[in-house]
């Protein structure tokens, strides 16, 4: 299946940018969710859960999502999941301040782990 990766995680970008269609932008966690919503409105199907990982939206700055590379008609289920996820993420208002580089790296690593399990099984 052809997929598109949406991410703000530089580790994911460095590992997958050569082999995959990737939309990498240095924006916030919430920004990635909203960017994904834009794609869903354009007819792309959501392939991974936006709230993947139990690390909370106000904890980790990094988020990677997979969507279908092709756009079709608006997928209502995808829309419902991304809208609910944005609403849930917005409840975690008080964002952590800047982390040290080590901690940032750990967050990148966790985000990568969540998505590489999926990428490894794509046919």
């Amino acid at each position: 299946m052809k997929v598109k990766i949406i991410t703000n995680n530089p580790l994911v970008y460095s590992l997958y940018s050569e082999d995959y269609d990737i939309d990498y932008q240095e924006i916030s966690y919430e920004g990635i969710l909203k960017k994904t919503r834009d794609y869903v409105h354009k007819g792309h199907e959501l392939l991974t859960h936006p709230l993947s990982g139990s690390v909370k939206p106000n904890e980790t700055p990094f988020k990677t999502l997979l969507i279908s590379s092709k756009s079709k008609d608006l997928n209502l289920e995808s829309l419902s999941i991304i809208e609910n996820s944005i609403e849930t993420a917005e409840k975690f208002l008080q964002r952590q301040k800047k982390y040290s580089d080590d901690i940032e790296k750990d967050f990148m690593e966790i985000d990568l782990s969540l998505i590489e399990n999926v990428i490894n099984k794509l046919l």
Partner: peptide, 8 residues
């Protein structure tokens, strides 16, 4: 069962 990835 929790099964998402590293530490999960």
């Amino acid at each position: 069962l929790q099964s998402q990835g590293l530490l999960h």
